[in-house]
């Protein structure tokens, strides 16, 4: 469970937004420049709001007037646009990067399961520039989930992929969410994609929620 309430002055408008998200897929949709990625960065701790409150599972990420919890202590999985894989590390090193040494044994199972579910076992010794776009996306997902985060943030996760790969990856995201059962927040400007993936969609415009739409299987969440 993640609860977000924040205001932040951006270049052209003041963002003011509030939402709660359970173990569901929340899609932030809207035109570019509407503040979608800023919301993700504030949740991840890479940016800080001007005021507000961000709480995840009783852990205080941000509260006006208090020192924000640093990004490294938030246990957030973040799949960046274009994935931001480390180009100088193999796929294997990328995936293990966030796993603490003392948790190695417990996480071995998680990582193995991820590799299996995403079908990327055969890529481990390759470098990011040696794998395809769809494979990069899977590696990025595996890396973000290997730390067993309490929330997964995805910034335009499918925008770099061709149509066919995109459909495959949409299915995969839904499948992963079914297994992991944590809040996923997906940013996209593609409305079809938003409707296909989202349990709930927030339409952002100029830093405000312009519309909210529950989509499907809400009863099952």
């Amino acid at each position: 469970m993640l609860s977000v309430q924040l205001t932040k002055q951006l270049a052209h408008y003041e963002m003011a937004i509030q939402f709660d998200v359970g173990a569901e897929i929340l899609v932030l949709a809207g035109p570019s420049g509407s503040g979608k990625t800023t919301v993700l960065n504030c949740v991840a701790g890479l940016l800080h709001p001007d005021s507000g409150l961000i709480v995840s599972k009783d852990r205080l990420f941000y509260k006006s007037g208090e020192k924000p919890l640093p990004a490294r202590d938030r246990q957030i999985g973040y799949l960046f646009q274009d994935y931001a894989l480390f180009p100088h590390m193999t796929v294997e090193k990328n995936i293990w990067y966030g796993v603490k040494k003392k948790q190695y044994k417990e996480d071995l199972h998680t990582v193995k399961q991820l590799l299996h579910v995403l079908g990327i076992e055969h890529l481990l010794q390759k470098y990011p520039h040696q794998v395809s776009g769809g494979e990069k996306q899977r590696v990025g997902l595996a890396r973000a989930l290997a730390t067993r985060p309490s929330v997964l943030l995805l910034d335009e996760p499918l925008s770099a992929l061709d149509k066919e790969t995109r459909q495959q990856c949409q299915e995969e995201l839904l499948r992963l969410h079914n297994i992991w059962q944590i809040p996923f927040i997906i940013v996209t400007h593609d409305l079809d994609e938003a409707e296909k993936l989202g349990d709930r969609i927030l339409y952002l415009d100029q830093g405000h929620i312009a519309d909210e739409k529950p989509i499907k299987h809400l009863a099952t969440v």
Binding site: G45, R72, F80, Y97
Partner: peptide, 15 residues
């Protein structure tokens, strides 16, 4: 350097 790479490391708990 792409700042997102450093940020990715930070979100994965790196000091």
């Amino acid at each position: 350097l792409d700042e997102r790479l450093s940020n990715a490391a930070r979100t994965m708990g790196a000091s």
